[in-house]
Design a protein around this nucleic acid. Sequence first.
DNA 1: AATGAATGAGCCTTCATTCAT
DNA 2: GATGAATGAAGGCTCATTCAT
Lengths: 219, 219, 219, 219
Amino acid sequence: MAIRKDGIDTRDKILKAASEVFAKEGYRNTTVADICRRAGSNVAAVNYHFGSKDALYVIVWRNAFEEALRAYPPDGGLPPDAPAEQCLHALVHSALHRILGAGRLGHAGRILIREMSDPSEAIRGVFRDVVRPLRERTRKIIKRLLGPNANDREIGFCEMSVLHQCLAMGFRRGKLPPGVIKGGGKPTPELIDALAEHITKFSLAGIQAVRENINNNHT
Amino acid sequence: MAIRKDGIDTRDKILKAASEVFAKEGYRNTTVADICRRAGSNVAAVNYHFGSKDALYVIVWRNAFEEALRAYPPDGGLPPDAPAEQCLHALVHSALHRILGAGRLGHAGRILIREMSDPSEAIRGVFRDVVRPLRERTRKIIKRLLGPNANDREIGFCEMSVLHQCLAMGFRRGKLPPGVIKGGGKPTPELIDALAEHITKFSLAGIQAVRENINNNHT
Amino acid sequence: MAIRKDGIDTRDKILKAASEVFAKEGYRNTTVADICRRAGSNVAAVNYHFGSKDALYVIVWRNAFEEALRAYPPDGGLPPDAPAEQCLHALVHSALHRILGAGRLGHAGRILIREMSDPSEAIRGVFRDVVRPLRERTRKIIKRLLGPNANDREIGFCEMSVLHQCLAMGFRRGKLPPGVIKGGGKPTPELIDALAEHITKFSLAGIQAVRENINNNHT
Amino acid sequence: MAIRKDGIDTRDKILKAASEVFAKEGYRNTTVADICRRAGSNVAAVNYHFGSKDALYVIVWRNAFEEALRAYPPDGGLPPDAPAEQCLHALVHSALHRILGAGRLGHAGRILIREMSDPSEAIRGVFRDVVRPLRERTRKIIKRLLGPNANDREIGFCEMSVLHQCLAMGFRRGKLPPGVIKGGGKPTPELIDALAEHITKFSLAGIQAVRENINNNHT
DNA sequence: AATGAATGAGCCTTCATTCAT
DNA sequence: GATGAATGAAGGCTCATTCAT
């Protein structure tokens, strides 16, 4: 019944525009007018389709994260009983792609980073839902790598070491420091892969060192 | 020529209030009224003393950073020819204290983190002036640890690994994940020290692994 | 030429919904969306069927009033030459039922009251058409009760005394003051009848007093 | 220190403008812009001085009512033990002046009437505080006039009969029906006095009739 | 005949800044 | 030197209405 193509189009256009602007500018810096201008629609359109700026933000966020998780699942397609080293690599690899990826696929990471340092009231719930599982997964892998003698603090520290190497990439807003890439431009997929390789190797060595330390102290 | 004591007081009170609120809420979430209410002065005071919200922000930022650097110098008081391992520890230790420290001394770190993920136009210049030297210092230490065969990319990657483990702490806004500290509260100086210990050890092992890899590839 | 049954249905549903909402919330507090939600139709329906919110309001008003007048005619079915006392009672009785009556029949009264204190431009015409005859009828009855010596002011005052006792009930929005009815709830038909009884008796005594006063002054 | 005359002036101008517009148009129909235009100030002034439209409304309301009560106290300056007939007259007289009075003194009544038929959420509390005492006073007088045998319903009915004759005048928004005053214009103080006279006499007769009825039924 | 989509005008409020003392 | 008052430029949202099917 009177399904108008442009109805869906406008909604999607707004969603697209919003995810771009939110990712780039953050919640507070983005105005509804910005989004609508970019989507080529009227200011009232956001409210019509989503109810409020807040609600739009939540939807954009959820969409972006789900899409990114689909494109780069944290298990990298590995079986649950794969070696912990491979699991760690898969985790790091997918996280980096989500955070640094170009286009839509990078929005999730960028929004996430913003939320971490500047949480919008609107989104705490979503945030928790999405970040906790990731942390759990990391934790499990770390546990396997540290062995049975590790205590909570040691696990927690290693968890932070690994995750922070990935998350902090979001700071750079897609730009790597000079020296790593000529001109400090945006990272190519190949560079992201190399970075994942590095972080994995770096972290495995770090974790191994912690493990040895634990075992020495226990004997 | 009596120096207007309370003039200076007001200025200082605003500076103090501003650094607290900016650190906690970020630039855009902070209103001039917030600051002035907290400083016990009136809304016009900010503009009167500093010209604009922007200018106040820049000053707050510079002050906070300089104060933090004085309190926790990145060289930790070590002589320039100290062993690279000690230098790395000093670097990490001071960075963590600047970022996680309680009270005024933590403001610098928190403002820094915010700026990284949400740069205010007002501050790009200051930002560069302040961050680059730190990066240079880190780079030099990494270079010494990696040996003469390391190329720019390898150095850059390790530099990021180390710095990001520190910087990302700012995300947490002073709260560590559960398991590391009971209740996820604010970190004590002791905990910060332990964390510095961990990051240093973790990173040295990571760097060492990278170094071995380099040498293997070169033979 | 099948008559679009659901077309009429929609129109009627809107009319019903509108009369309820208008009576309860008043013209300005009612949104077209409110009405359409309640009618189970879409926002465009009001404009489609009635042209505008204003036009719908006018129609609702007229309908409600005519329906109420049919259900409770001001003459109460009395012959024109019935005793003035009975006519007064019939008038009061029907007015109270129109104003306080439950369901559709009360809408007319409630809308009327609202219009009196907050006239919408849209309706002045209708309002006059509908109120004037009532006033005329009241006036005639009062005249008979006051006798031939009453002047316009005396008639007008008594007219107001009687009508206002009825009309002001609309203020209460269907709730009577505590003491009159337990819990201050909505009036039952029996209570309305009792109230009509009271107002009639009260007013007849009042009018009689005015009449005596007139006659004393004239002698 | 730096008391600016115009500060107070603006606040007062807004208060004045607001009480006029609110009384004339009601809460919902009045825009902040209307008020400020009338007060010759900026739209932001309302928020600056009063915090919100709601808060302004509450203040206007309270002011208007208090001022009106001061100008026309419900006891009319009578001693508490004055004859009930005189008390009733004083009550009616003052109520009518408050409701029909010209200029500022009439605003209270007009706002009151609006609130009765179209309550703003903002004001329920104030409303109760202000109306209940009046009702109590009326009730006491009625009780004295009805004698000891009256029950709650009889008292309540009479209370309504008296109060409604006064309150409903607010409907007219200052205009009396044709016949009472040439041209249906605004009531003069003299006319208001005459009306008070009428309502008192009318009501005393009504109450007396109710009383006789009570006593007949009790024997 | 009917409707989901879209719009623009308008409203209340916030806020950095300026004014006048 | 300092401040209470005042402002204008947005910003988010509501709503009656119009558009396109």
